[in-house]
Design a protein around this nucleic acid. Structure first.
Lengths: 246, 246
DNA sequence: CGACAACTTGACGGGCGTCAACCGGAGTGG
DNA sequence: CCACTCCGGTTGACGCCCGTCAAGTTGTCG
């Protein structure tokens, strides 16, 4: 069971990595009225079009944001893991412009958007940290536009794996070599703008070259330099998000 | 010639659309030390890797942000026009993670990032407005990921045209039907993840169907409903950016 | 009027989508 | 404890959308 007392250090740590916080900032965070919820796999946390009343912190598990074309074609625009703040994007908007869905069972902590916004005004350091977090997200979106727009399937998948690996490591998930890869091939496809069939072929290619190894929902990177080279991966765009990985 | 006195109302108007500003906010904006510069076509305003010391307001003309793959393939991640704030993205980061380049001759107003950041803290409404502006940008990036990842060439180009049209209208550029389309076909290609050859064929297709008309760098939309339908365009994701267009 | 960038068009090929079949593991119910 | 089901993964055949290459043409600026 997760309690309010477990959440506070996680949030403080997360924001503290983005901007220095003083004692009063930390006290203010401890006062936040989190509501903790356990969520099953494949459940919506936010639906596009919903009024945006709450923000949430992903305490445990994995999630993604996605949008769909009018014809129903889905595009995942980001993956999220333990410690990520979701839906800061709509903190200042009345309705959500995209959906957020769990990939695995997860636990999340909800805070009223109004409360958070008010806190950001009262404690400018916290405001900075939140703003910075959304800027990192934006930087990742830009990299994804590049990834989907200008890399072939092979590099595209490799790039997505590199990013996921680095971000996992940054929050202490998995070892340097291996980590959980919780999404289905169809979800990888929707994130890279490909089809699940082609993801399957591409992963097989990487496996046959000895770059990666997979079993179940676990991925082992056998040849990091090669994977980075295939991806053309340069982690700068992750900014603080990978601070610990350096 | 553009002077400091011309810039202030433009900035005030821009930010005022995002969040209500009081007299003190406006006075603070008027005190900002803008440095005005005229820039030729195809000049870099910011290069990826540059230290991010200044932010800039695009006073007149058009610009784009872009990133490139290690193999040198370029992806434009956004277009910008009169009134847009550029490089708020790197307000809180030490180095720029992408480049910004003019598409036409332009005039820009520079402000030290430090000054703006300090203003955002001192006047929370201005901070909100700036944050909100970066959130709108992020929302547009997400839509671009979807556009490039999940639409075919035809819809993709149509979508890009719809967005550009709506944003032009929002800042009073062009008429409901026609507007300047300042970018080359190669730039449209780099924004949509296609090639200039295919952009040429796609635009021809739209012309032959009577959806659009082009002469020089000018575009006339002959059949708006049809263009929107081809694009599957829903302007919600532009949030405040198109406030005036409604 | 010459030079250069942007646009235009055709021929051809490949990367990836589509369709379809099959497999394998996990959960479920008898 | 075994059948049944279902989701996700795997593989092959085939074809199309879009990239590539190449050769003009047009427009613009000196």
């Amino acid at each position: 069971m997760t309690s309010h007392a477990d959440i506070v250090p996680a949030v403080t740590r997360k924001l503290g990595l983005l901007t220095p916080l003083d004692a009063e900032d930390k006290a203010a965070i401890a006062d936040l009225p989190f509501e903790i919820e356990s969520v099953a796999q494949n459940r919506y946390l936010v639906r596009a079009g919903d009024p945006a009343t709450h923000c949430c912190l992903l305490v445990e598990g994995y999630a993604c944001r996605h949008k769909t074309t009018r014809l129903g074609r889905r595009q995942i625009v980001s993956f999220h893991m333990r410690g990520d703040l979701l839906d800061l994007q709509s903190l200042l908007f009345p309705v959500a412009d995209h959906s957020i869905q769990t990939i695995t069972a997860a636990t999340v902590a909800w805070v009223p958007a109004r409360t958070l916004q008010e806190l950001a005004r009262r404690r400018p350091s916290i405001g900075d940290a939140l703003w910075r977090d959304t800027l990192v997200d934006a930087s990742i979106f830009r990299e994804w536009v590049l990834n989907v727009g200008r890399r072939d399937a092979r590099s595209r998948v490799a790039h997505m794996l590199c990013e996921f690996a680095v971000r996992c490591r940054a929050v202490g998930l998995g070892s340097p070599e291996g980590f959980e890869l919780p999404m289905t091939q169809e979800e990888i496809a929707d994130a890279t703008g490909l089809t699940s069939v082609h993801i399957n072929r591409t992963l097989r290619g990487l496996r046959e070259e000895g770059v990666i190894e997979q079993e179940r929902r676990h991925l082992i990177v056998r040849n990091w330099p090669r994977l980075r080279q295939i991806a053309g991966f340069d982690p700068n765009y992750l900014h603080g998000a990978a601070a610990e990985a350096a």
